[in-house]
Each structure stands twice: as C-alpha cells, then as structure tokens.
C-alpha cells in the first residue's frame, strides 16, 4: 500500500465515524500513526483495520486551550492494543484508567477521533 492510499482510507473510515488503525500481518503489531512500513519489524505487509472504538485512558493532562477552555489532552489505549494522542470530552476531571468510547468530531470539514467517558 502506498502512504497516500493509507491516508485516504483513514479519511473515509473516519468520515464513516469509525477509527482506523494499521496491523502488520508479519508480526501482528498494531499502530495508529500512518506509515507504509511496520515500525516494529519493518515489513510492508500491512492491513488497515477498524477499531471497535473502545479503550482506556492511558494518561491525561488538563490544560487551557487558546480560547481558555479546559481541555483533557490524553493518550488513549484502544482495546486492539494501539495508542494515540486524543482528547477526552468531559466537563469533569478525567482519570487514568477511565473507560472511553470513540466520538468522531468534524473540524474544518474533516473527521477526527475524540473520546468520551463510558457511563458505568
């Protein structure tokens, strides 16, 4: 797969409100950041997968953005094993270990993955 194909597939998956990720067929490593090479075993035998969109807050920090709004910038670990930077949308403080689910938001006409805390 060419990188451009990976990126375009990611965009259409996100547009369909799903979270894409990459899986290496050679070593089974899963990753999110778009490369056409497995950063683990360097194989080019990759497939694009769709995550179930469920995960756990791996780490989180609260900060004020440029508009002075509180933002929970986080690393999310998805149940499929890969991690990404994202934001947990919540008015309340978010803790490490919180279960979260995917919420796709549109920014400037493109769709991107955010997360919300799962209700117990």
């Amino acid at each position: 797969m060419r990188l451009s194909e990976i990126i375009s597939s990611y965009k259409s998956t996100l547009m369909a409100k799903k979270l894409p990720f990459l899986r290496c067929r050679a070593c089974s490593y899963t990753f999110y950041y778009t490369r056409d090479i497995c950063p683990h075993c360097h194989s080019r035998d990759l497939e694009i997968m769709e995550s179930k969109g469920l995960g756990t807050v791996f780490s989180v920090t609260t900060l004020l953005n440029k508009e002075k709004q509180r933002t929970n910038y986080a690393i999310i670990e998805l149940d499929e094993g890969f991690r990404l930077y994202s934001t947990v949308i919540s008015d309340k403080p978010v803790e490490i270990g919180t279960r979260v689910s995917l919420k796709i938001l549109e920014i400037d006409g493109s769709s991107y993955p955010f997360f919300v805390a799962l209700k117990n």
């Binding site: 950041y33 778009t34 933002t71 930077y85 490490i96 270990g97 920014i107």
Partner: peptide, 27 residues
C-alpha cells in the same frame, strides 16, 4: 510525519507531553 492526524488536538506541546508522563508516573 503524522501532523495531519496528530496536530488537530489542543495541546501545550512540549509541556503537555511531559505532563502526560508525570501523570502516568504519579499513577
């Protein structure tokens, strides 16, 4: 190389990245 999908979130890079590490270490 991944800015198109990584740089859309509000952060205070690099402060927020080290904050994530400090939070994880604390936990």
């Amino acid at each position: 190389p991944f800015d198109w999908i990584y740089r859309i979130y509000d952060s205070l890079n690099p402060v927020s990245d080290y904050a994530l590490v400090a939070a994880r270490h604390a936990k």
